[in-house]
Design a protein around this nucleic acid. Structure first.
Lengths: 190, 190
DNA sequence: GTCTATAGGGCGATAGAC
DNA sequence: GTCTATCGCCCTATAGAC
């Protein structure tokens, strides 16, 4: 296996561990075991645990941005409303990778660590700019899209899903999940 | 000073430290120094760091619920729309205590710790129930209210405020901050 | 490029005095 | 009720062999 592939392996493993345990709560040893390499090698590859976390944040944001871009580019004539649904659906697909969204959330709450806060602000802004400029959202549309995204992230963070026994919990989850399912279908025909 | 007062002091100090550094990243020593007591005493009072964090989460949620309740009770005839604005304003006031909101956020992202996840789910549900039942919000209104709250929390978490140089960042922050300022004014006259 | 061994520091929790 | 002293663990990072 090439060294570069092993680096990818470690980033992927780290995304899962960081998502589950957070930045401080994750050990380089747990990441190393998840990736099948030794703990010192993980540190050697990235220099510090912080640098590894920043690499994970960057990877997560790049994936987010490229998935959103793909929706925009494959629907060049779609209205902002339709793109709203399409990008929302793309976000829903990203949910399958819990580590990705949860790692981002952990980054979003750690503004007190200078390098992490700077990366989080920059990344959040890049997403906002993509929505405003390339997808043509109004400021309010972008705000509402981001707000619902953050609510979804929070529900994932507290592990509140459709499997909850409580009927109120299920009502909330069901109300959040299938936003504008009808608009999503229109995407293919636009 | 009574022992109970000292306990309050520690909870308040812990709220600030946990909000800034997160659950795992906060040390009982830092909390003790912030409260002006010794580190072992903090542990002795609450048993474990986890129990202290749970006490902080509980305190934060109680304050949130009581502030929201106050708005509802002092406007018994107000419509859901007006209450939406009023409770939103109450939430805005809570923002002054960064430790409170950020401690909650740190709890919301740590569902992997069993006791913390359980407390977060329960607390989140209590807020949802208050919005649905006592404030009379529809499921969609409650969802949108919570979504915007989570966006505000996230912006606070990444330290993105009005002081940002970037014009896009300021547009986003200004768009999030003064939602329905006109409705808030109507509260006093309802 | 990747490992084993380990240093070095910090933290939560306990023991015990006052 | 509150402190001082300290134990024992865990974790990041380094050293150095292969």
């Amino acid at each position: 296996m090439r060294a570069e592939d092993r680096r990818e392996l470690v980033i992927t493993a780290a995304m899962g561990v960081f998502g589950e345990r957070g930045y401080v709560g994750s050990t380089t040893d747990a990441i190393a075991r998840a990736a099948g390499v030794s703990q010192p090698y993980v540190v050697r590859m990235f220099g510090t645990k912080e640098a590894l976390f920043l690499a994970v944040l960057d990877r997560a944001l790049q994936r987010l941005l490229s998935d959103f871009s793909a929706v925009i580019e494959s629907n060049p004539t779609a209205s902002a409303e339709v793109l709203h649904a399409g990008i929302g659906a793309a976000y829903g697909n990203l949910l399958a990778d819990r580590g990705l969204l949860l790692s981002l959330m952990h980054g979003f709450v750690l503004g007190s660590v200078p390098a992490i806060g700077a990366a989080a602000r920059l990344g959040f802004l890049e997403v906002y700019r993509l929505l405003r400029r390339r997808a043509g959202f109004s400021a309010e549309q972008a705000r509402d899209f981001l707000a619902h995204g953050m609510l979804v992230n929070t529900l994932v963070g507290i592990r509140m899903g459709l499997e909850m026994d409580d009927p109120d919990a299920r009502e909330l989850v069901e109300c959040v999940a299938p936003i504008k399912a009808d608009l999503i279908r229109r995407l293919a025909h636009d």
